[in-house]
Design a protein around this nucleic acid. Structure first.
Lengths: 112, 112
DNA sequence: TGCTTAAGTACTGTTTTGGAACTTAGTAGA
DNA sequence: TCTACTAAGTTCCAAAACAGTACTTAAGCA
């Protein structure tokens, strides 16, 4: 089954995953919940490549999870902010965080 | 950043995603919570290809989220069952389900 | 004019995934 | 005995996604 076919699955978990279920999307949302809102911030924080980031931001905006808010007109620049729909993912984010805290201790203090 | 480097990230959400954050893993876990436990059941339910399924099951077992329980010795056959660690993902699963129910209505009643 | 910042795009090569067929080990039936 | 069947994977190849780096655009600044 193709990933894209999941958006109309009977199961609400599957439909949610059709938006959030890839490697990077939830990491972007984590950054949003931490208060980040700009392209360069996401790029630096998550370490993902710029072109995947651009793609994921676009999808999240299309899905109505994030919204673009212009903060500069001269060169068009946008903040990416959580919509209400996006805000409601907070409980999910917290359950994932708590599970990670409890079950996945950091093995090495600093990155390899 | 490589996906595999995420397992030692400072952020517990990132560490959780290093295990669950791919396209199919949470779908397997959903099936576990629905009571499925065998390879063929997962394959049919999720529609994923068999070799990705085999890979994900192996990873989940290595991560301690699922455990293999032999139900047949003659040809070695196993049930994949949630460990306690896996059981504790139930709240996360439910928050994702609830979000999907609320925000992602099915557009077509039957699959394409 | 040239340097910097923010936000992307483009190009190229490596990984991962999707789809289908094949394998293995045992069981059941003709 | 030969054949088909079941469960659980494996193997192969082509297609898609990804990582890394360089490039672009549009403005501000020295």
């Amino acid at each position: 089954m193709k990933w894209s076919e999941l958006s109309d699955n009977w199961c609400p978990v599957a439909r949610t995953l059709s938006i959030l279920g890839d490697r990077w999307t939830l990491l972007i949302l984590r950054d949003c919940f931490l208060g980040l809102s700009r392209f360069e911030q996401f790029a630096e924080s998550s370490g993902m490549t710029r072109h995947i980031l651009a793609d994921r931001l676009k999808r999240l905006v299309e899905a109505g999870v994030l919204a673009k808010q212009a903060y500069s007109d001269a060169p068009k620049r946008y903040d990416y902010v959580l919509t209400e729909k996006g805000q409601e993912l907070a409980p999910a984010m917290m359950t994932l965080r708590d599970w990670g805290k409890k079950h996945l201790p950091v093995r090495r203090a600093t990155a390899n």
